[in-house]
């Protein structure tokens, strides 16, 4: 049987040739992402903003009366409720942020949720509540805090591990690649104003993990080649390492994608944002391992001596004497 080869043997793509323009573009993208996060802001879901997210089905109506709901719920004085179709045509999600007046009143979130459900069921007795997520300002503040800690600690702990296993330059490189991935994911969420929830934090941590897989595979090969080809110039050696691991990089990204795409298309509606973030992260992570994590080693001054200490004159003579040179 002839087996499929996604990547031809012995590729020799000069990835590193374009490292400066790619770096410039990536740095600009990172800057643009943060600018977006700062200006447009993230569209916090109830986990982080507090408030209610209620999803439900109108059992006896062909279509959810979204316009009418906007009008009736708008009169409750709860600010601007976000009402969207959710899943089927007769299903909706109603999202209301906690009004500022609710600050310092932990009971407000629950009271408002009851008010919303009562208002809708009064006019539409066929409305069935499928889910109700109500988070008070106190709890959402804790979630925000914990999420920042989780992301920071994960990045630092991983960088420290890479440093221990490789060299400090690799730790910095991996950290930078992760920073790139996290920044671009956040930027994407700010740009498209997709709902940013606890699930997205989980997705980002998964992205961190899998982007790092790629980085580690490339780094491992660089380390191996540094020991093997001690005279090769670093850019050439990095190109060689990336090319040698290219088949694996493509194949793994592909298996991840084919596993995730059905979940994105046919999976539960409430997982959509999370899975979309991970799919996005697969692309960003693969790119960053090749174009962010590898070239930075050149600028950080990695040499073949990073892993094999330079021979002393005595050792060299010793080898000569044994006839190895």
């Amino acid at each position: 049987m002839k087996l499929l080869k996604l990547v031809p043997d012995d590729t020799n793509i000069k990835f590193l040739k374009w490292r400066v323009p790619f770096y410039v573009v990536s740095l600009l993208l990172i800057a643009a992402s943060w600018a977006l996060v700062m200006t447009k802001g993230l569209n916090y879901g109830v986990d982080f903003a507090g408030g209610q997210e209620i999803t439900g089905t109108f059992l006896e109506e062909p279509e959810a009366p979204i316009g009418e709901l906007r009008d009736t719920l708008g009169t409750l004085g709860l600010g601007d409720p976000v009402i969207q179709r959710f899943g089927e045509v007769n299903q909706v999600s109603i999202r209301v942020r906690l009004p500022e007046s609710a600050e310092g009143d932990p009971a407000a979130a629950n009271r408002i949720a009851t008010q919303i459900i009562d208002t809708v069921t009064e006019q539409h007795p066929d409305f069935r509540v499928d889910s109700n997520n109500t988070v008070s300002g106190k709890v959402s503040g804790e979630f925000r805090e914990k999420s920042v800690y989780a992301l920071l600690f994960a990045m630092l702990a991983i960088a420290a591990y890479i440093w221990i296993r490789f060299e400090w330059q690799f730790g910095v490189g991996a950290l930078f690649a992760l920073f790139h991935d996290v920044s671009l994911t956040l930027g994407m969420f700010a740009l498209f104003q997709m709902e940013f929830s606890l699930q997205i934090i989980a997705a980002i941590l998964a992205i961190i993990g899998y982007s790092l897989n790629d980085t580690i595979v490339v780094y491992d090969r660089i380390r191996e080649n540094l020991k093997k080809y001690r005279k090769m110039p670093l850019p050439e050696l990095l190109d060689l390492s990336v090319n040698e691991t290219l088949a694996r990089t493509v194949m793994t990204s592909l298996t991840l994608l084919v596993a995730l795409l059905p979940l994105l298309l046919f999976g539960p509606a409430s997982l959509f944002g999370m899975v979309a973030a991970i799919v996005l992260g697969v692309f960003v992570g693969t790119y960053s391992s090749i174009y962010m994590a590898a070239p930075i080693l050149i600028w950080l001054g990695v040499t073949s001596h990073s892993f094999v200490p330079e021979e002393t004159v005595a050792e060299k003579q010793d080898r000569k004497a044994r006839g190895e040179i």
């Binding site: 989780a150 702990a157 991983i158 296993r165 989980a202 941590l205 993990g209 790092l212 897989n213 090969r221």
Partner: peptide
């Protein structure tokens, strides 16, 4: 080598998610 390193770093991310995450996450 790469397999173990990759899994350990993933493990670190997983444990932090477990420690700081809540409920479903």
């Amino acid at each position: 080598r790469a397999i173990y390193d990759a899994n350990i770093t993933n493990f670190i991310a997983g444990v932090l998610l477990f420690l700081f995450g809540s409920g479903p996450v």
